[in-house]
Amino acid sequence: MEHAPQGRPVDLVAALARARSPERPGPDTPAGPAVRAWPGPSRQIPEADGEDLDLRALLRLSLAASDASGRLRPASSAGALHPVDAELVVGTGCSLPPGRYGYDPLRHHVHRLGGPPEGTPPGVSAELSVTARRTVSHYGHRAWPLLLLDTGHAAAALFLAARALGAGEAEVRLDGLAESPLAAVFMVPPRGQDPVRPRGGTHRRRPSTSVPAPAELLARRSDPPPLPGTPPPDALRAVLTTAVRVSVGDLHWCVAVGAPRPGLLELAPDGTTLRRRAAGEARPTLAAWAAGQAWIAEAGAVLLAHGCPADADAPRIRRTHLRAGFAVHLAHATARRHGLTARPVGSWQQADLGAALGAAPGRDWIVHGLALGTRHADEENTT
């Protein structure tokens, strides 16, 4: 069972089925504090000494708020509500003394919660959980898939920040087996101490991606709609390739494009060329499925992660949505590197893509999306 803000258990299978239904959320409710109430006094994160992993820079590039409201952060979040909380298990070789810490992204401080667990390896493990109330306050019964997607985005932001700081490949746990933490990202010091995996979780090494510059991570934003302009084939291929390469198992990927040849494109088996999966204009239907966001019908293209059948159990639901959020975040970074505008789309109702394409119903639902374009909204308004 998952847990509601008041501690009541939530049946994740039933929650996803309801989130996929046409039922509309009720009125907004209070979101509560923007930061988890960590116990004890807060403390600044010191500068890194020598070859230690710079946790202050790592968190600044991945989870820290850059405005007083807390809405603007390097990781995407539905409604900019940011429900993901990070607890740090710090070993040697880091800019904080070994121990367990709660992170405050608004003050960019930490709260020491205790000493490190026995056997903590060098480096840091960021354990990600959620305060569901923040997202439930606006999205109501549609919140749970969004909470999982947001956690995947936060894990990807940590992954990219580690690469930008030269910490090498991070170990990312997105297996969906645990209710709390939902995900964990383990990062080693740049000097390359032996990356022994933390106890109590299965971690998987993710394929390499391009090393981003710190400024690139801080500049990542979800572009406001509309997102006009059809991306060129090489950019679409790069975005699709990133999503396919960094997600495993349950997810499939395609991209909806418009004129002159509207349809759904996917990567061919050779992994380097695009092929047509289906013909016809899909974007108006996607707009209706995506909580009625009409602007999606005019987006240049829409990347789609699909899978997670109606009979999926809770671990599969968690795993699929976590991996979708992770992959869309990295695809977003690739899109920006190719000069595209991009905006994640997380809320989908009645989006049974498989049934729409003539397959058995209930087997192939849209899980996440990324709207793409070549021009910003302000440019569109001046043309």
Score class of each variant (00 low, 15 high):
residue 1 M to Y: 10
residue 1 M to D: 03
residue 2 E to R: 14
residue 7 G to E: 00
residue 25 P to I: 13
residue 28 D to P: 12
residue 32 G to C: 02
residue 33 P to G: 08
residue 36 R to P: 10
residue 42 S to A: 15
residue 45 I to H: 10
residue 46 P to A: 03
residue 48 A to F: 02
residue 53 L to Y: 06
residue 53 L to P: 11
residue 54 D to Q: 12
residue 57 A to R: 15
residue 64 A to K: 06
residue 66 S to I: 10
residue 68 A to G: 11
residue 77 S to V: 10
residue 85 D to A: 11
residue 96 L to R: 11
residue 97 P to H: 09
residue 99 G to Y: 08
residue 100 R to W: 05
residue 107 R to S: 05
residue 110 V to Q: 01
residue 110 V to E: 02
residue 127 E to S: 09
residue 132 A to L: 00
residue 137 S to M: 06
residue 138 H to G: 14
residue 141 H to Y: 14
residue 146 L to A: 13
residue 147 L to D: 04
residue 147 L to Y: 10
residue 148 L to S: 08
residue 151 T to K: 03
residue 151 T to E: 01
residue 159 F to H: 15
residue 159 F to D: 14
residue 161 A to Y: 12
residue 175 D to P: 12
residue 176 G to D: 03
residue 181 P to I: 01
residue 184 A to W: 03
residue 191 R to P: 03
residue 193 Q to K: 03
residue 209 T to D: 00
residue 216 E to Y: 11
residue 224 P to C: 05
residue 224 P to F: 01
residue 229 G to V: 04
residue 233 P to C: 06
residue 238 A to L: 04
residue 247 S to R: 01
residue 253 W to D: 00
residue 255 V to N: 07
residue 259 A to W: 12
residue 280 G to A: 13
residue 280 G to W: 12
residue 282 A to I: 15
residue 284 P to S: 11
residue 291 A to F: 15
residue 295 W to H: 13
residue 301 A to D: 03
residue 302 V to I: 13
residue 302 V to H: 14
residue 308 C to P: 04
residue 309 P to E: 00
residue 310 A to K: 06
residue 318 R to F: 00
residue 323 R to Q: 14
residue 326 F to T: 08
residue 326 F to M: 04
residue 327 A to Q: 02
residue 332 H to L: 11
residue 332 H to N: 13
residue 335 A to R: 08
residue 341 T to A: 03
residue 348 W to F: 14
residue 350 Q to D: 10
residue 351 A to R: 07
residue 355 A to Q: 08
residue 355 A to N: 04
residue 358 G to N: 02
residue 365 W to C: 06
residue 365 W to I: 06
residue 377 A to E: 07
